[in-house]
């Protein structure tokens, strides 16, 4: 395991939030943050508070919807869910990230091969 955690790249948090909501269904802010931490294996350096700025951005774009409800411990909580537009956006973003990471992988592998 590396010594330090990874900084999130620009734009990746929004995609992570969309992916989490798509997979888990409606969640409140803390639930989304915890899920991302769990999926990243605690490798990502994430100030959980930044989740809320991302949620506002996605909500204004119409990618997610928000609704007040009651949490498991009977507290008032705002639950976020992905919309159809959000799913389309997520699909497009995922495709781009997949292509980019594949390219990065190939470039880095080639560079390693040339060294070896």
């Amino acid at each position: 395991m590396p010594d330090s955690k990874l900084d999130l790249l620009q734009g990746t948090l929004d995609l992570m939030v969309l992916q989490t909501l798509d997979a888990m269904g409606p969640l409140h802010g803390y639930g989304i943050a915890r899920r991302i931490e769990q999926l990243s294996g605690d490798e990502v350096l994430l100030n959980q508070g930044t989740i809320y700025a991302s949620l506002v951005r996605l909500q204004q774009r119409g990618s997610i919807a928000a609704e007040w409800g009651v949490s498991d411990n009977h507290r008032k909580a705002k639950f976020y869910s992905i919309t159809k537009a959000g799913k389309r956006q997520m699909k497009q973003d995922k495709s781009e990230w997949t292509r980019l990471s594949a390219v990065m992988g190939r470039v880095l592998a080639a560079a390693e091969g040339e060294k070896g």
Partner: peptide, 8 residues
């Protein structure tokens, strides 16, 4: 929301 987050 922040308070709920911290409490949880």
């Amino acid at each position: 929301e922040a308070q709920l987050h911290l409490d949880l």
